[in-house]
Structure formats: C-alpha cells, structure tokens
Design a protein around this nucleic acid. Structure first.
Lengths: 135, 135
DNA sequence: TGTACTGTAATAATTAAAATTACAGATGAA
DNA sequence: TTCATCTGTAATTTTAATTATTACAGTACA
C-alpha cells in the first residue's frame, strides 16, 4: 500500500485552489494530515518534473509550476510511479521449471501494457478538471 | 507491494500447462519459489471464483476449474483485487479544510475509473492467450 | 540578526506482506 | 485398519516497506 499518487494530487489540488498564494509545507500537511517532511519530500519529487515551484526562506512556500489546465494526471502518475499497477511479487521463480523460467518476462510485459492503459486514461484528465469537481 | 496477481497468474499458468494432472501445492510453490501455505491460501481464494478445482487427500491436488480459453485475466484481477491500482493513502484528510473535506470522494471516484479501465483491458486476454506465449 | 521558511539526511515507529509452524480432516493404498 | 500424503486453515514469527519524527544546514526577508 502506497499513497504517493493521492498525496501528490492532494498537494496539487491545494495549490490549484490558491494560485496566488505561497503555501507552506505545514499548511499543506495540515490539510492532508500527514507529516510536513513527507510533503516536502513529495514536492521535491514533483518539482523535478516542473509541476511545482518553490521559494525558500521566510515567507517561502509552494506554487504550481504550470497552470492547472496544463497539468495532466498522467504527468503526476509518471512522476510518482514506482511500482506497476498490478503489484509486484518479490519471489524469484524457479529457473529449472519451464514456466518459472519464462514467467517474469511475460508478467512484466503484461504489467507494461496495463500501465500504458492507465497512462492513456489519466492523459485525458487535467488537474483543472479534477480540481473543478470541488464545490 | 503485493504480488497476489502475479502469484495467481503463475498458479493458473502451471495448471493450464498440465491440464490432465493434479498439481500439489508443494510442486506449485517450488515453481513460484514461495511458501506452499501461501499457494494454498491463494488457491482457496481462486476456488471461490470457480477458477480452480481441488481434490483433498492422498494424491490430491489442483486443476483448472474452467478451460483456459474461458478464463479471462479480468476474472483473476477481480478475484485477487484488494487495493485500487493507484494505491491507497491511509491518511485522514482534514475535514476543516475545504479541499481535505471532499478530496477522498473525488480520489475514490478517480480510482474507480482507473480500475474499470484496467478491467476492460484484462477482459480482452484469456489465460490461454497468456499461457500460449510460453515456448 | 532573528524569524520563518525549505531541503534533506538519519533514525525510529508502525504497518503490511510473506514465511513458518502446527495440526485437523480427507483420501487412497498397503 | 492404519499409514502416508495431501488439502485447509489458524496462529505466530519474520521481514520489508511505509510513514513519522528528529535534527539541522541553508535561504530570504524584515
């Protein structure tokens, strides 16, 4: 279980709602209800993809790196992606078994196909779309 | 990280390759390289969905519950599914924040959409298709 | 020069996943 | 009938991943 995607979308939604303010990691963490260090870590990652800008020092904080209309949820997916959507087994199949010998390659190919499917789906939704669903 | 789907597909692939034999949990566990109890547990789950038949007692073991052409990978996905593909955060967003108050509902709806997308993709692939990729 | 931030490393606590142990019940064979 | 071999399942331990916490250097502003 891993909530990176949800955390990232939560952060980006907050920023999209207050585009003219610098939000602090403490404020963001208070809305998500997690530790501020995790917020800063996740933002440090999203920043690499240009999705967030930051300003250090007193009165520093975070803003979106792009307008919400230009951020696709597929960008977020790619940025936070560590594990394939179908999960990942950590076993090492038996190389002396004809099935065990080949299955990793076939399972990986399947996982890749599924990931492309997800990506294509998320590629149709912008942060603005998502954020616009809030009352 | 959770490898249930991969384990399930591995089990089913083995059974599809030897449709006339009863395979034991020990044999299956040896191919996957995990503990036999986990194999029996996963099979106990797949059995509920009719995907596997079992026979107890000496010389007992497992066979497919349906021909491999009739088993869809979406059946497997549904059978093993516990967590949404986008992951699941365990935080409880702040209900005093306008975003925190509503975000779970919107994230859940998104996760559902993505799960449908995956399901539809896996709905196009049979166990026979998958198993047929092995040399 | 003090205050309020970010950035990041290191460590601890918590939780989830997987492995193991144990044993009851079923079935077939000697 | 009784032994051996298998499934079914509960309970527990071990391992690994996630999240939280602590700590502090660096930046920017007043």
């Amino acid at each position: 279980m891993n909530g990176q995607f949800q955390i990232a979308v939560h952060i980006l939604t907050l920023l999209s709602k207050q585009p003219d303010e610098l939000l602090s990691s403490d404020y963001i963490a208070g809305s998500i209800n997690i530790n501020p260090v995790l917020v800063r870590k996740e933002i440090s990652n999203l920043r690499k993809y240009g999705l967030i800008d930051s300003k250090e020092g007193k009165a520093g904080g975070y803003t979106l790196g792009l307008p919400a209309q230009k951020i696709l949820l597929s960008d977020v997916y790619r940025a936070v992606k560590v594990q394939p959507a179908l999960g990942q087994a950590k076993n090492k199949p038996n190389p002396n078994c004809p099935v065990g010998k080949q299955i990793s390659q076939h399972l990986d190919a399947l996982a890749d196909e599924v990931d492309v499917t997800i990506f294509n789906k998320l590629n149709t939704i912008t942060l603005a779309d998502f954020s616009g669903k809030f009352n």
